[in-house]
């Protein structure tokens, strides 16, 4: 069962990475609004100016 000494730390490491990713997402306002993006995605003809400024903003 030597494998377990490697597998579990690896599993925990992955879990920790997932938690860190979640924390990153939470700190970048990804959980601010859970409804609108689903609809926004369906609006196809977003004007050029709009998309540009969005890109800038999401920094």
């Amino acid at each position: 069962m030597i494998l377990i000494y490697i597998a579990i730390p690896v599993a925990l490491f992955i879990a920790a990475a997932a938690v860190l990713a979640f924390m990153w997402a939470a700190h970048n306002d990804q959980y601010e609004d859970l409804n609108t993006p689903a609809i926004r995605m369906l609006l196809d003809d977003a004007p050029l100016i709009h998309t540009k400024s969005d890109c800038q903003k999401s920094k």
Partner: peptide, 23 residues
């Protein structure tokens, strides 16, 4: 949502408008 987020096209100087429907 579409109407309001298209505002930058109508309003000079407005860079972006993002709507949060839930709030």
């Amino acid at each position: 949502l579409w109407l309001l987020e298209s505002l930058p096209r109508l309003q000079q100087g407005l860079l972006s408008a993002r709507v949060d429907l839930g709030r």
